[in-house]
Design a protein around this nucleic acid. Structure first.
Lengths: 234, 234
DNA sequence: ACACAAGCGAAGTGATCGCTCCGTTTTAGC
DNA sequence: GCTAAAACGGAGCGATCACTTCGCTTGTGT
């Protein structure tokens, strides 16, 4: 099956999920027998937990066990482990869209960027899976392109509002925020057993200080091109 | 075998390699037959290359193949894959010590921290292996404790000189630099195919701006304790 | 030159992974 | 309630991993 099956409907934006795709998926899920539906939800819930604890290399056996189903059932609902990850990632990206939109609409423009980065890093630190999935899936899979674009637009808006308010340096772009989230979350990868769980706030604090116009020096190289986010494969 | 075998010599600093340990290792290596010695060096060189390209999950089969030896030969020279990694990590930590010492001695105190961070991130970005080994080995293995302590002392000295020169914010500590290297290198983990290889300089630039005293705001929480680095297990 | 310990690699071992086969059980429409 | 389709899970498959065995080869001290 091609990743982007052509429909007879008028052309959708390249890389976006077409309406028939979405409808087909929804219908498939809702036509499941009651037990199958219940197991599907249990599998997703278990996978979110297990991936958060052990990262994406957690085994499908462990996920199935925690969900209380056989491994075969997992693969009956999701064609592959990657498919399961994608199902989770899609809902998580939708949550990011919600958060970013809320930062744009309901935050003081002076601290929208700070709030967005802080909440994103906090989520990433608490969930190993979301951090790894960002690299393996969110940024590159063509079927997530429309969500990526939406997130990028909202991040760009956040940065522009911060710049207008005078709290964000002028040479920052929306594309930069993804890298800064990754940088802020990297402290969580450090393997010190007794370290306090919120140590990431210290290093995000340094990054946030680096985003203010006051001490800013010229950044080289310039920001990555927008199209790297929108269409990484092309 | 206990990780820190007791010797009859006077007590060495806890966690340091004792002199008998080092002597035994050296002797073992130099008593190898000529072909074995040559193969040992080939294996290390191949492993450095392969780990740099594919990270630590690269297979021992690939390393042996690139070294032009059988897999059994690899395991005759190194008791386990982990042992091979440790041999590499030790020499790489010695290089870090050299770099840090050179930054302390030969750099203008005003930019010692900047030079150290820049060169460390540059190495980390070019070598996936060193990045992963930092988390898996450098920071936690007891037998690397003396090297860790030495690096920490040099980083602390670099920070203090920068603060005396007025280019580094007063609330930074030597312990922070390890986290900042990881943060600066995290941009390299982003999976965009066409991105310029030196994009890390942009985000390290932001971090460096955040290290200056000018725009600094209060950092919460405070720095991690020194002993987390010196003796993470204890 | 020779004897023999040391070194060698092809072929295996057991563990684990993602994934599937197939006989049994459960649900849903009539 | 009955039946056919749908869903189930244990048991197994092939691939891959770190690591070992074993019969042959090679360097080295005498």
């Amino acid at each position: 099956m091609p990743p982007e099956p052509q429909s007879t409907a008028p052309a959708a934006p390249a890389g976006a999920l077409t309406l028939p795709d979405i409808a087909a998926t929804e219908e498939r899920v809702h036509n499941l027998r009651a037990d199958a539906q219940r197991n599907r939800e249990r599998i997703i819930a278990a996978a979110v937990e297990v991936f958060a604890e052990h990262g994406l290399e957690a085994s499908t056996a462990e996920i199935a066990e925690r969900a209380g189903v056989g491994e075969a059932t997992l693969f009956r609902r999701f064609a592959s482990k990657d498919d399961l990850i994608m199902a989770i990632v899609e809902t998580q990206m939708d949550e990011v869209i919600e958060l970013a939109a809320d930062c744009v609409e309901n935050s003081d423009p002076a601290d929208g960027v700070e709030r967005f980065l802080t909440e994103m890093v906090e989520h990433s630190v608490a969930d190993r899976g979301v951090l790894e999935a960002t690299k393996d899936a969110c940024m590159v899979k063509p079927e997530l392109q429309s969500r990526r674009r939406e997130i990028l637009n909202l991040m760009t808006e956040l940065v522009k509002r911060g710049q207008a308010a005078g709290t964000i340096r002028g040479d920052l772009t929306g594309q930069d925020l993804g890298f800064l989230i990754s940088a802020g979350a990297s402290a969580a990868g450090m393997p010190f057993p007794g370290i306090r769980a919120d140590i990431w706030k210290r290093y995000l604090g340094i990054i946030l200080d680096g985003l203010r116009p006051e001490g800013a020096t010229k950044l080289r190289p310039g920001p990555p091109a927008r199209r790297l986010f929108e269409d990484p494969a092309g």
